[in-house]
Nucleic acid binder design. Sequence first.
DNA 1: GAAATCAGTGTAAGCGCTTGCATTTGCATC
DNA 2: GATGCAAATGCAAGCGCTTACACTGATTTC
Lengths: 340, 340
Amino acid sequence: MSQLRSVPTLDDVARAAGVSTATVSRCLNSPERVVEDTRKRVMSAVEHLGYTPNFGARVMAARRTFTIGAIIPTMENAIFARALQAFQEELHARGYTLLVASSAYQPEIEEEQIRSLVARGADGLLLIGHDRDPAVYDYLKSREIPVLSAWVYLPDTGQPAVGFDNRRSMFALAQQVIDFGHRRIAMISGITKGNDRAAGRVLGLRDALQANGLDPEAMPVIETPYGVENGADALRSLMQADARPTVVMCGNDVLAVGALRGAQDMGLSVPQDVSVTGFDDIELARIVTPQITTVHVPHREMGRKAAIALVDMVEKRSTGDVVELKSTLKIRGSLRDLNG
Amino acid sequence: MSQLRSVPTLDDVARAAGVSTATVSRCLNSPERVVEDTRKRVMSAVEHLGYTPNFGARVMAARRTFTIGAIIPTMENAIFARALQAFQEELHARGYTLLVASSAYQPEIEEEQIRSLVARGADGLLLIGHDRDPAVYDYLKSREIPVLSAWVYLPDTGQPAVGFDNRRSMFALAQQVIDFGHRRIAMISGITKGNDRAAGRVLGLRDALQANGLDPEAMPVIETPYGVENGADALRSLMQADARPTVVMCGNDVLAVGALRGAQDMGLSVPQDVSVTGFDDIELARIVTPQITTVHVPHREMGRKAAIALVDMVEKRSTGDVVELKSTLKIRGSLRDLNG
DNA sequence: GAAATCAGTGTAAGCGCTTGCATTTGCATC
DNA sequence: GATGCAAATGCAAGCGCTTACACTGATTTC
């Protein structure tokens, strides 16, 4: 018996159209298997009753959700926004829905979010970076849920990924900085614990110092959480030193913008008094004055390719490759050429 | 028969602990109804098997999801980020999970997202603004799903909301601008169609002109979609006019930042050659130079109060009130006082 | 000491959908 | 007109969980 004045179910539609629930279900999921005439009748009943399939029930019966989960460290600031947008668009084109959660850069929260997305039936998961408790990967493997990492290229881990080499990218930027005549280099890094992107960027800078006969150990490094204010604070404390750095290289653009503001607040002019560099090339980097020299990351391409790769894994067309994307340098006003 | 090497179910846990599925379910959902001894046994079985409840099945049986859906116009730029963060935190504290979707400012996409969230069993919905097809509200009402709007205060609609008066806020800012001696005022507005916030802001500015004996119809207004580039373009075309405006008031901070850049690109200095104002007071407004004069919106408070109000509605403690929050002016460097 | 009470647990009926298999229908073929 | 076959549709068994109700044994009450 259908309830009075309540949410319509498949059963209600079937009754209204004078067919079985199976036929209604087929109309919705594989219309070509139902004859035109019947289909029309069913669809008009669907329309008329305002029927929407119950997702939970559908998932249970079909054991597929066509949902992909993504967990990013933060939604604030646009770092992941552009890639996620492209990821979503590509998923949509392939008939998948994206569920996004953010971990606030905290491993425990990330694990909770992973479990929650899995419980909700995510067919596949996109994560940022590789650096997490192996138990997480075991759990996902036992559930047979494909995982893809973005934002990293570390082929040795063997984990499927679509990303770029953070270490090599920072090396390239640092080489440019050194070529511009800078020797007193300081760094403001994001928190490196549990963050292989941030860690890789520090390593890349140290590599470059080493390669150019400078002492990596002598470089001042401040680690600080994501945030404009933190960047400003860090810059102030770096500029307190006896031998002020001529350039402050930041682990990401948000810290760099903070550093820029911090310098301006101190009455220092960038790049005359101190140069600043960032990483990621988010929109912000070109909005501030001077514009920030940074490493351009192919956000949209990364998002799109990640979607393609992950869907291939979910649909068992692939077991997951490691794809490398190229980053490029963007030399802008915030970096001074000391030779010039 | 339990399957070999597969995802554990309630049944597997029950068998492992030597109890019925009902008891396991109770252990998970209302532990106080199970005696300590049994509970321990069950929990260790849960742990051991790595059991995670199947969300879909749970929803079907319990007919509650403890999930709240939110649909915001855009994830890019930080406009909604801070409020959403607070919304999420407060929901979490009350045992709810947030599902976010974005509509790209397109009504059809918003409707699709609403259906999708409803199908997924959202217990309640947060939307931005009131301005949408009444059929949407009918649909939600027939499903008995509480809806709350944020970012607006328009008590006449009778729709539950937590927000501020866009029109009055813009009026206040415009009054200040006029008090500073500006008479040639131009506006860059967001798209007003289907967006009562943007529309309200335009009206507020016109009100202020009227109230001060200026001709509202004479004011140049450019409507343009969200985006820094668009703001810059709009400013350029406004400055092409014979009688250049002394101030360009923007419908939001993103457009204002664009206007600022546009002016700088033209070699104009802000605020000497032209003043710029924004709306929303996102972080960006204080990052650029000069800092942008704007209307401060209590993002976090709005998010938090929206969560409280919506959960009250979901749990039938309220049928939804209309709550007004206060906005405040932030007078900063981008606005010149022509009297001073 | 029998009856009443109660906490703790089990039984089993769905929740709304998909899908393998069985059945019916429509139509070309003999 | 009977036969065979494919296409269209119906039947019914679950998917994994919650919860109303039934049951059991211990404790309290008179």
